[in-house]
């Protein structure tokens, strides 16, 4: 029997709880390591309550509690929902274009120092437009040209009209 939409939704919620709970716990543990590993005045000052470590420590504890709560809820839901494996393929496939877009944005700064701001913005704008227009029945070249022109136009406005030193 194929799963109903409500089953799929419930499994998605369980997956979301598990992933977010694990991430919260990992973040809390990682930041706690950074926080408690920091030598010197941070912890000396804690002696004079309320010191600079007071709120971070309360927050790290709260984050760990929230993470543990989410993980617990996810594990309980997973146990109740049975052992059917979760299909992560669709979630990962639809996350690929946004990740590619983030990489394109992140490449802007290094590209800017190599080929100049105008060309870097044009290239990244073209790439983003092509990525957003994937699957549409439109000319890739035209999309890239328009996307690049718009991005270069914005860069010019900021650089010349608003005097932003790009």
């Amino acid at each position: 029997m194929s799963p109903t939409p409500s089953d799929t939704e419930a499994r998605r919620e369980i997956r979301n709880d598990l992933v977010s709970g694990a991430l919260c716990l990992a973040l809390s543990a990682g930041l706690a390591t950074v926080h408690f590993g920091q030598s010197g005045r941070l912890h000396e000052a804690t002696g004079r309550e309320p010191g600079p470590a007071l709120l971070p420590e309360i927050l790290l504890l709260l984050l760990a509690i929230a993470g543990a709560g989410l993980l617990f809820r996810g594990l309980r839901g997973n146990r109740d929902a049975g052992t059917e494996p979760m299909d992560m393929r669709a979630a990962l496939t639809s996350a690929a274009p946004p990740l590619l877009a983030l990489l394109l944005l992140a490449s802007l700064l290094p590209l800017r120092s190599v080929i100049g701001a105008g060309l870097a913005f044009a290239l990244v704008g073209a790439g983003l437009a092509v990525l957003a227009g994937r699957g549409e029945k439109v000319s890739i070249l035209r999309t890239a040209a328009l996307g690049g022109a718009i991005a270069a136009g914005f860069q010019a406005v900021f650089s010349h009209a608003l005097s932003v030193p790009l």
Partner: peptide
Amino acid sequence: PHRLLLSAVLVLCVL
């Protein structure tokens, strides 16, 4: 077109 709009929004966000 959404493709041009999204590209423009992302570039404007960085700027």
